[in-house]
Structures are given as structure tokens and as C-alpha cells.
């Protein structure tokens, strides 16, 4: 964005903090897939986007998913596109990983593992939170 000065009549663009919170398993319901679709569209807007995975939502990022037995599309590779879309703030709740015997190394993309307390603070700083 160009520098604003007193002669600049352009309306400054609004940049808000958008956080997308994934709390559910990748399959069984459509929420995970349709949330990912929102995030990929949202990335086209010049907003401050972050994506959070907690509770069963951490399983969305699990490596080596195989959906052949349930006849659904394995969309886990699409999370790799987040980086291409410049979505770099990807947070995973530590407690949710621990409870499921997972570590960051089990996930398909690099993430920032965050304790619930810390995550709560980051959530409190957001302008818009879309949870599913």
C-alpha cells in the first residue's frame, strides 16, 4: 500500500484480523472442507488471516490420510496450498495434539504449536472469528 499523506484522497483500505477456527474431524461432516474453501477465498483479500486447528480439528492436518474406504475426497494435500496463498499464520493447539498422541511432526504442513492460554490471547486480538 502506498504511503498516506495529507493530499492522498484515497480511502485507506481496511485490514482486519480474520481467524478461521477448525474444531472438527476432517471427515464425517463437511465443515472442514468448506472451511478450507473459505480460507482459500479469504486469502485473496488483503486481510490478516490466521487459521487455527483445535479439538478434533487437529486431525485435519494428519499426514497419510487414506479415504479410499469411505469414498470421500482426501483434501488434506490442499492445506499445502495455504503457503502459496500467503496464509502463514497456522496455529495448532498443543493440548489437542497431546490428547490425541500427535506432534507437529505428524502434520502435513509446518504449524505453530500454541498452548491454550496463548491461543486464547491471540483469539482475543481478532476482529472476525469464523468457527466451524
Amino acid at each position: 500500500m502506498s504511503e498516506m499523506n495529507e493530499f492522498d484522497e484515497d480511502v485507506p483500505e481496511i485490514v482486519k484480523r480474520f481467524m478461521y477456527v477448525n474444531r472438527r474431524a476432517p471427515y464425517g461432516t463437511i465443515y472442514a472442507l468448506e472451511c478450507l474453501e473459505v480460507v482459500l477465498i479469504a486469502a485473496a483479500f488483503d486481510q490478516d488471516v490466521s487459521v487455527v486447528f483445535l479439538d478434533d480439528g487437529v486431525c485435519q492436518l494428519k499426514k497419510n490420510q487414506d479415504t479410499t474406504g469411505i469414498g470421500m475426497k482426501n483434501f488434506s494435500k490442499t492445506y499445502g496450498a495455504l503457503d502459496d496463498y500467503d496464509v502463514e499464520k497456522i496455529y495448532v493447539e498443543k493440548e489437542s495434539l497431546d490428547a490425541r498422541g500427535l506432534t507437529a511432526g505428524d502434520l502435513v504442513i509446518p504449524v505453530e504449536v500454541m498452548a491454550a492460554d496463548e491461543l486464547r490471547e491471540v483469539m482475543a486480538q481478532q476482529d472476525v472469528i469464523i468457527s466451524s
Binding site: I14, K16, F18, E37, V38, I41, A42, A44, F45, Q47, D127, V128, I129, I130, S131
Partner: peptide, 16 residues
């Protein structure tokens, strides 16, 4: 979906 993001930008609050 851009209409959802735009609503989040323009509104004071987005209620889900």
C-alpha cells in the same frame, strides 16, 4: 464466498 469476507470487513461485527 468473497461476499462473506467482504461482509466481515465492512460490518462492525460478524455474528456466526
Amino acid at each position: 464466498l468473497g461476499q462473506l469476507v467482504e461482509a466481515g470487513i465492512q460490518a462492525d461485527r460478524l455474528i456466526v
